[in-house]
């Protein structure tokens, strides 16, 4: 409990220090919105012209997009700092973290605060209301509860991917650059129905870089199209579990990395 209070205070301090620069804060929130709007406008405009892709209507693709955005927003809001871990390790700033009596990962996550996540979440919620109306969804309490679990699971999946890549920084100096490749996958490949890809990519996006669980698989459940899941219909339910397992793996890997850490000595 005490730990949580400390974390809350540190995070609040981070937000406050960002708020010092009002314009910058506002710009970063706007950027979160605009960044995601680019892919949304792309999908929306193309599908307005073409109506559907691989058997999924414009509204259904919009729903897949929304699921990913919500999970991504939660990741950005809470864990975005994981992406700077490699920087701290390379420059030796990681020493400071190890000296403090708090979990190193939690410290890193709350170090700075990126307000862009607020924009992501805002847009995500607007999209959610819009797509629910377009598809005439009536959200029952159990469905909503499962949606929350799916979003949390998706958030954990993205966190695990970035944590794994950044843990590589303990061995490879250039690990930060690989982040960009993972962003390409999670930002672009998770946006569309998985059945547009060939078998190899479907395998990769399900088992290796499992961003399919952030959006496509749970979407088949909410859209009553579990017949369209790949590999096994059960995958539609697995997102929360995949998130937890993946995070457990990523966190163990992180522990191994920390133990290997040698300061840069500069």
């Amino acid at each position: 409990m005490h730990r949580l209070r400390v974390l809350g205070l540190v995070m609040l301090a981070g937000i406050k220090s960002r708020m010092e620069y009002r314009l910058d804060f506002f710009l970063r929130v706007t950027m979160g919105v605009v960044w995601n709007l680019t892919s949304l406008i792309f999908i929306w405009a193309v599908l307005t012209r073409f109506r559907s892709m691989a058997g999924w209507s414009q509204e259904e693709v919009f729903f897949i997009y929304t699921l990913r955005l919500l999970a991504h927003a939660c990741y950005c809001l809470l864990f975005h700092n994981v992406q700077v871990v490699s920087r701290y390790v390379r420059r030796g700033g990681f020493d400071r973290v190890l000296l403090r009596p708090l979990n190193p990962l939690l410290q890193l996550i709350t170090w700075e605060y990126d307000p862009a996540g607020i924009g992501d979440l805002g847009l995500g919620l607007v999209c959610f209301v819009m797509v629910s109306r377009l598809l005439e969804f009536h959200w029952t309490p159990p469905a909503l509860a499962f949606l929350v679990l799916v979003v949390a699971g998706g958030c954990l999946i993205e966190l695990s991917l970035f944590l794994t890549i950044n843990t590589l920084a303990f061995w490879i100096t250039e690990a930060g650059r690989l982040t960009w490749l993972v962003v390409t996958f999670s930002d672009n490949f998770a946006l569309y129905p998985l059945n547009i890809y060939n078998g190899v990519l479907q395998f990769v996006l399900t088992f290796l870089i499992p961003v399919g669980f952030m959006s496509y698989y749970p979407a088949t459940l909410f859209l009553n199209r579990t017949g369209d899941t790949l590999f096994s219909p059960a995958f539609a339910y697995l997102t929360p579990l995949v998130g937890l397992v993946l995070f457990a793996l990523a966190y163990s890997f992180w522990r191994v990395g920390i133990n290997r850490y040698q300061s840069t000595g500069s």
Binding site: V46, L47, F50, S52, M53, A54, Y192, P193, I196, Y197, N198, L201
Partner: peptide
Amino acid sequence: VFWTAVYG
């Protein structure tokens, strides 16, 4: 892949 799916 995207445009192939969209053209269908």
